[in-house]
Nucleic acid binder design. Structure first.
Length: 263
DNA sequence: ATGGTGGCTGGGCCA
């Protein structure tokens, strides 16, 4: 471990190939011990393992090509990697979840399906996927373990997590079944640590590229680090780095970061 | 404005 804290972050980079310079720059500046990455949009064969190892990070990637793709990089150890859901839950045809143990903490990086529209088959896939995520989590850990799930959940848990709730009526990300699936997962023994430390509404992690949404403050909070109680009680800060959404060729998501004090 | 932008690609699909 480094110092008396461990920094854990999660970031949907929207193509690791298009974003590699920004990602490595962000890592150098912020020095995370563990980073969960989503939407790498690449095959395992082209994942930049050596770029990260040159920076002192081990990495594990579950990719499929042009879409999806999740990774965990760590400088505090990376063991017991599980690609996809555990087999007892059922394998997903898409590359959306990878799990590992990093410095004694079980870490899961997830890219929850978007859902597209309430009447779309993909919406049912999303609800089923959330149910499987809970089963997967309960299979690999106990609620008393140190575990964190970092990722893009494509769900805004409350109306405080969207810029204007009236604009989302009948849309995905805010529907009652999705919010129920999210709270069901949390009921297993996880807490949204950013919200615990920041009760203020309208703090976002994602802004649409279109319509100047970022500059107008029109976003959603859909990226989370969900921690078990034993981990959450040692968290000293939680932030969303909205600066990472600025400038040239940003991802449409900002990283979420938590700082955990040593036991 | 049933639009818009960005990243796959190499014409649409996906977000």
């Amino acid at each position: 471990m480094y110092g008396d804290c461990v920094l854990i972050a999660s970031w949907n980079v929207n193509s690791l190939k298009a974003r590699l310079e920004r990602v490595t720059g962000w890592i150098k500046e912020n020095q995370p011990d563990v980073l969960c990455i989503q939407e790498t949009k690449m095959k395992d064969a082209v994942f930049p393992t050596s770029t990260f190892s040159d920076m002192g990070y081990e990495s594990a990637h579950f990719g499929q090509g042009q879409w999806n793709g999740v990774a965990i990089i760590s400088r505090v150890g990376l063991d017991s990697v599980i690609v996809n859901f555990v087999p007892s839950v059922e394998l997903d045809p898409e590359a959306r979840i990878i799990s590992a143990t990093c410095g004694g903490v079980k870490v899961v990086s997830v890219y929850v399906p978007n859902g597209r529209a309430l009447d779309n088959d993909h919406y049912q896939y999303k609800l089923g996927w959330m149910k499987k995520l809970k089963q997967h989590t309960a299979t690999i850990a106990n609620p008393t373990d140190d575990l964190v799930i970092g990722g893009d959940f494509n769900i805004a848990p409350t109306d405080d997590d969207v810029w204007d709730a009236t604009k989302f009526e009948g849309a995905t990300h805010v529907s009652a079944p999705e919010r129920k699936a999210f709270s069901d997962l949390c009921d297993w023994g996880l807490t949204d640590v950013f919200r615990d430390l920041h009760p203020e509404p309208r703090v976002f992690s994602w802004w649409d590229y279109r319509n100047g949404s970022f500059h107008k403050g029109e976003g959603m909070r859909i990226d989370f680090l969900l921690a078990t109680k034993s981990l959450a009680k040692r968290i000293t800060s939680a932030e969303i780095d909205r600066n990472a959404r600025k400038g040239e060729k940003p991802s449409d998501h900002a990283p979420v970061i938590i700082r955990v004090s040593e036991k």
